[in-house]
Design a protein around this nucleic acid. Structure first.
Length: 478
RNA sequence: GGCGGCGUAGCCAAGUGGUCCAAGGCGGAGGUCUGCAAAACCUCUAUUCACCGGUCCGAAUCCGGUCGCCGCCUCCA
């Protein structure tokens, strides 16, 4: 089964193959740890997680590197404002990032290199660029000279001429020869306070782009398979990275570039500068679990903008409500399978019909994922299976053994989706609830429905929902 | 001004030339079941894919144009 990805470099879908058979090396742009990441940021990390899990589902071994940008203008400015050292300041947000990552069930990358731990590697790369004549110095800082790299602009499809007209140009970049040139090494200024490195390049700190070139080279080599990020990284960040890596290390650098679209909120980009962002903490506080957020972020194809319909001031949370409903449908289905699995009958065998249904579903699921991570198609396969199996369940056509293999299939798909298991709920006094249920059932048996409904209502107010089923009364948290 | 993306039912969202209907989810309507409810199941909910032309035996899907929305070109996932 083939795997195809839309490559930003060529603007088309291409069959994917890795340099080393069965092994994928990929670099995924990580967070700048100057604040809590918002769920728009996490859309990118969930996308990268889906990519990683899909590659594994297609039997690749994955080596994933995700950088942590822990030195830049913002981290320096904010740490100084709070009177903290850079490391003390960024520690908080690194920890928060890893917590949120785990809550959202994002698999761990193999390496999380921090920029501040790799300054020598960056200096080494800059020195190569100096030797090869790609740099110039201005006011103590070092810049990359774009005109020395004819291929510049290929990824973003930008030409030198088109860049300036009408664009917002940073007015204080006057010291550069060409506005497109970018800093490799920034000379220390008083605003940097105690943040600087004494290096052969002088006292200062690295530019933004150089960390990714240096760190990807260190952990993945000069030519690797996949590089990802948000669309806003295409230009200038990734374009500049290509310039640095190709000019410094030589070789081809990256084969496939994948970029995910933004999360938009009511039609607008979610971003810190627009003040319309929510963190995972914000969302969980109003009662939506990380699992719901993961499902929502996962549910749209990565290259289309995902619109979040959410307004905490009015309580309108359509996007999360429908994600929750969809998950409930899955949970209900699994719970029915589990019921069935408990009552194994002797001589029970798996039916041919179920086997065929699962084979067909597997093909749909795999084909969809292989087609540029068509998550909607994959979820379509999942719900299609649930629908068919539900019909068979209702008709009593599903054996215990069938229930087992169907559930195994869901668990297998969950290696990619990561949404099957409910979040760990806060401790609930189950014994008390069961006691009330017993009282209610006694009332029902005595046809005292006023009392039975009162108990149901009381539990409902506590967020506990009751369901009377042929197998007895079941309860769950709303 | 340049570059890129998007426009499919009330909402979200697949589908890139034709095999049975334009997946699937949410929401809605009716029914079965139920003391009531819930869940589940069944039926219904786009003769149509922003609009206008064109190519083709055949287009949501390709080509040209129009309109609208968004993003990048400054830090940004």
């Amino acid at each position: 089964m083939t795997l195809r990805f839309y490559n930003t470099l060529t603007n088309q879908r291409e069959d994917f193959s890795s340099q080393s058979p069965g092994q994928v090396a990929m670099y995924t742009c990580g967070p700048t740890v100057h604040d809590f990441a918002h769920i728009g940021n996490f859309r990118a990390y969930v996308f990268e997680d889906l990519l990683r899990r899909t590659l594994k589902y297609f039997s690749f071994t994955v080596t994933q590197v995700m950088n942590l940008t822990d030195v830049d203008d913002k981290t320096i400015r904010k740490s100084r404002a709070q009177g903290l050292s850079l490391n003390d300041y960024t520690r908080t947000y690194k920890d928060a990032f890893f917590q949120d990552r785990d809550a959202l069930r994002i698999e761990h990358a193999e390496v999380y290199p921090a920029a501040t731990d790799h300054v020598p590697e960056m200096v080494e790369l800059i020195q190569k660029l100096i030797e090869k004549g790609h740099t110039y110095e201005s006011e103590g800082s070092l810049y990359f000279r774009i005109s020395s790299f004819p291929d510049y602009g290929r990824l973003a499809n930008v030409k030198a001429e088109g860049l300036l007209a009408g664009a917002r140009v940073d007015s204080d970049e006057y010291e550069k020869e060409d506005v497109r040139d970018f800093a490799l090494w920034k000379a220390w200024t008083p605003e940097d306070g105690g943040v600087f490195w004494e290096t052969p390049l002088g006292k200062g700190r690295p530019g933004w782009h150089i960390e990714c070139s240096a760190m990807s080279h260190k952990y993945l080599g000069s030519h690797f398979d996949i590089h990802t990020g948000g669309v806003d990284n295409i230009f200038p960040h990734h374009e500049n990275e290509i310039a640095q890596s190709v000019c410094g290390y030589g070789g081809k650098f990256v084969n496939t570039w994948l970029h995910c679209a933004h999360l938009v909120i009511n039609g607008e980009k979610m971003s810190k500068s627009l003040h319309n962002f929510y963190t995972l903490r914000d969302i969980t506080q109003v009662g939506f679990s990380p699992r719901v957020v993961r499902y929502f972020l996962l549910s749209a194809h990565y290259r289309t903008p995902l619109n979040l319909v959410y307004d905490p001031s009015t309580g309108n949370a359509e996007s999360f409500e429908s994600a929750r409903s969809a998950l409930e449908r899955i949970d209900e289905f699994r719970s029915k399978l589990n019921e069935l699995k408990k009552h194994a009958a002797a001589g029970d065998i798996q039916s041919r019909e179920v086997g065929e249904m699962l084979d067909k579903s597997e093909r749909s699921f795999r084909t969809a994922l292989g087609n540029d991570l068509d998550i909607s198609g994959a979820l379509g396969a999942l719900f299609g299976l649930i629908k068919e199996a539900n019909r068979m369940l209702a008709a009593g056509e599903v054996t215990t053994s069938d229930a087992q293999v169907i559930d195994d299939k869901l668990v297998s798909w969950d290696r990619v989706l990561g949404v099957l298991e409910p979040d760990i709920a806060p401790a609930i006094d189950a014994a008390r609830i069961e006691g009330l249920i017993a009282a209610r059932n006694a009332a029902r048996a005595a046809k005292d429905f006023a009392r039975s409904d009162a108990i149901r209502k009381q539990l409902d107010a506590e967020g506990i929902v009751l369901q009377d089923t042929p197998g007895g009364t079941k309860w769950k948290k709303k």
